[in-house]
């Protein structure tokens, strides 16, 4: 078909084919470089990915311990809460929570107040009833057990799993700031310390709102003294520090945990305040907790409807 008018060039053409069969030397080098890049990249990805997965972070250690602790059939939880302003104690609160799932019983003894005034509340769960007793009144309020589904139903793993995943995802890389340390005795110490710019904007916003809400009780005459002592921060409110620490036992169960939140700001007069919220939680008597029991015979009783429960909490 082809009439060649030029010089015969079989030499050139065979050379052309040879070159092509080799793919060209520099071409080959190019593909090899790119291929090597892919290979090295893949190896690095697998190595770093798996090491990241294997590297149990403080967050994971804590999550596991929290789950295990919740799964215990009975335990006693002591909660201590303090709020201080510039080092001066404003509020202290304490609560003893005793839960026994097998006996379907529980009790809470809580006090809150400052050095001059204390209020307390007791809650008992027994024999299918919930009983409230506040230190303000001499009445035991009794309510038939009609708790919302999630409370009645012991198995609420599903919603909590969703919550856990959402929290985990929202925290994102902040999770990685949580560390875990072996204590030598087999126990672990997990911590997440956030300060300054590490504090997520959302937390900062929530902290600010909470602080201003707490101070709003000032105008409420009924409010107890310790609430009126709460400084009303108006400017430069900032969550400066969040320290969360947890001690985890050898059996991967929480022994105690502490959360300390420091919020700074200034009030109307321009005075600087440093509010510190400390919550300390202590777990004890695993599997041998017996909740307090109250004998109602001869005591003043008031039956309350479901709606009344909220009022009961508010005094």
């Amino acid at each position: 078909m082809i009439e060649s008018f030029g010089k015969p060039d079989s030499e050139v053409c065979s050379q052309g084919f040879t070159l092509n069969n080799l793919g060209g030397l520099s071409m080959k080098k190019k593909w090899m470089t790119a291929g090597a890049g892919l290979g090295i990249g893949a190896v690095l990805l697998l190595a770093s990915g798996f090491s990241a997965m294997a590297n149990t972070s403080g967050y994971d250690a804590y999550k596991t311990a929290l789950k295990n602790t919740k799964a215990e059939t009975s335990l006693t939880t002591n909660v201590d809460l303090t709020i201080s302003d510039n080092g001066k104690m404003l509020v202290t609160g304490a609560a003893d929570l005793k839960v026994n799932k097998e006996q379907k019983a529980g009790s809470v003894a809580a006090t809150i107040g400052d050095s001059s005034e204390k209020r307390s509340i007791n809650v008992f769960r027994q024999e299918g009833k919930v009983i409230f007793k506040s230190s303000e009144e001499d009445v035991y309020k009794v309510r038939e057990m009609n708790a919302p589904k999630w409370q009645r139903n012991g198995d609420h793993s599903n919603p909590s799993k969703v919550v856990e995943q959402v929290i985990g995802t929202l925290l994102g890389n902040i999770k990685d700031l949580a560390t875990v340390e072996d204590q030598g005795n087999g126990g672990k110490h997990a911590e997440l310390h956030l300060s300054g710019d590490q504090v997520p904007a959302v937390v900062n916003a929530v902290g600010t709102v909470v602080v201003s809400k707490l101070a709003n009780h000032k105008n409420n005459e009924k409010a107890p003294d310790w609430m009126t002592n709460m400084p009303k921060l108006t400017d430069n409110i900032k969550v400066e520090k969040i320290d969360m620490d947890a001690e985890i036992s050898t059996k991967d169960i929480l022994e105690e945990q502490t959360a300390k939140i420091k919020i700074i700001g200034t009030d109307k007069s321009g005075k600087k305040h440093e509010l510190t919220f400390t919550i300390h939680v202590d777990y004890s008597d695993l599997n041998k907790t017996v909740p307090e029991h109250i004998d109602l015979t001869g005591k003043k009783i008031e039956e309350i409807k479901n709606k009344g429960m909220k009022r009961g909490w508010r005094h």
């Binding site: 892919l38 990249g41 893949a42 690095l44 770093s48």
Partner: peptide, 13 residues
């Protein structure tokens, strides 16, 4: 390293 590996792989590919 994980991010670097993504760079290398995506770039090479």
């Amino acid at each position: 390293i994980l991010m670097l590996s993504y760079c290398i792989m995506a770039y090479s590919a």
